Amino acid sequence: MEEMKWLEVTLDTTEAQLDGLCARLTGNGVTGFAVEDEEDFKTFLEQNRQYWDYVDEDLLEKMRGVCRVKFYITDDADGRAQLKQWLTGIEQPYTLTSLGDNDWAHSWQKYYKPMPVGERIYIVPEWERDKAVPEGKTPLYLNPGLTFGTGSHASTQLCLMGLEEYTVPGKPVLDLGCGSGILSIASLVLGASSAVAVDIDPKAVDVAYENAALNGIGKDRYRVLAGNVITDESLVRELAKEKYPLVLANIVADVIIPLSARAGEFLTEDGVFLCSGIIDTRADEVQAALEQNGLQVFRRREQNGWVSLAARMAR
């Protein structure tokens, strides 16, 4: 079967002209288009921490000052006739980019390459698992197409560095706000006996289990739950049946602060509460909340404007 060819149509515009352009396109019959706007992009990131791992400095720079609309047509006479109709009355210049069918599904894969983190962890996209892993590195296989965390965001890397230091071989780990499961799965490949992971988003359950399977980890060692640890008392009681030498929370400051009041319910006597996802301007506020709830911070790591804190119950 011959591969379908597509054209991506891009119209650059301004904040002031955006609404009018979208209205005109809709009026001309365009049924679907994407808006790329720097301000919307920033708002989206602030409200959706699960996508932080997909955003690096290069992408932020590419979005700077951007305001544009994109839609797609078939790369043939019919598609070009349709384009002419859709652009009736629109003065903005446009660009055309040719796309093959395979580009839709696989072109994004070129952005994900194996990535060392810390001293031992080596994050590998699952389609590159047949390639050699550097000596002394522990591979962690992920499918970045599963959304949630891929390990490239500074807050996740800070937590992974902490995992190398605080994972106790042969002992369990609790991951609160697990997303893709990257941290709890990493703890298992680093030698933890078992892990329990929790996320408020039910979609995270299947994602974490699938990433665990990529690493040969089954449900005998890994359990993933959906729920809110701050408000669900039955979930807290279930989790607190076991005590953990390491509890992880790579979330955001506004969640870590109330969560710090519960952390002690899950920790062993000398257990470590490792939290990240904290923007540097709020690190002191989070540390104060930890200390108010009986936790003593003994290690602080910083990277690219993000902070992780490691704490134990004060004696």
Results as ranks from 00 to 15, higher is better:
L59M: 05
D270I: 03
S98E: 12
E2R: 15
L87H: 05
Y222K: 00
E285L: 11
I123N: 14
P144Q: 08
Q92D: 15
S155I: 12
I123H: 14
T88K: 14
S187Q: 02
R221N: 02
R129F: 01
E38R: 06
D254F: 01
L7Y: 04
A310Y: 00
M1F: 00
L59W: 13
W52H: 13
K110L: 06
G294T: 12
G177I: 03
A105H: 11
G27A: 12
G218M: 05
I217A: 03
P258N: 14
A132S: 13
W86E: 08
L18R: 11
Q17W: 00
A253H: 05
A283N: 10
P169Y: 06
G170E: 02
T10H: 08
V173E: 09
L163Y: 05
H153C: 05
Q17T: 06
V35M: 14
M4I: 08
E210N: 10
P114R: 12
V252S: 13
I257H: 01
M161R: 15
P245F: 09
N48S: 14
K243P: 04
A283C: 10
L214S: 09
D53R: 01
D284W: 00
F33Y: 15
L7S: 01
V173K: 10
D76L: 10
M115V: 07
E3K: 15
E36V: 10
H153Q: 05
Q303I: 03
T97E: 15
D103T: 00
I90R: 10
A288I: 01
S180E: 04
G149V: 04
V168S: 11
E36Y: 09
S98K: 10
S234H: 13
A253E: 12
P114G: 07
K219L: 01
V66D: 07
F148Q: 10
F33V: 05
G20H: 13
I257T: 07
G181Y: 02
L246W: 05
Q287H: 00
L248P: 03
D232Q: 12
L183M: 06
D284L: 06
A249F: 04
S155W: 07
D254G: 11
L174C: 01
A263W: 01
V307L: 07
A310M: 02
G89F: 06
D58I: 06
L183N: 13
Y94K: 04
N293S: 07
G305R: 11
V247D: 06
G145W: 02
R301Y: 05
W108H: 11
R300W: 03
V247P: 07
V286E: 05
R237W: 03
R300Q: 13
A34V: 10
V297R: 05
Y244V: 00
A23P: 05
L274N: 03
W108T: 13
A249V: 05
I182E: 10
D12K: 13
E91W: 08
M1I: 10
A263V: 03
G170V: 06
I279A: 10
E265T: 00
L11Y: 05
G151V: 03
Y112M: 09
Q17P: 01
A195P: 00
R24C: 10
D284I: 03
P245M: 07
D58R: 13
M4G: 09
I185K: 03
D40W: 08
L96D: 08
A105F: 08
K5R: 13
D103F: 02
R223C: 08
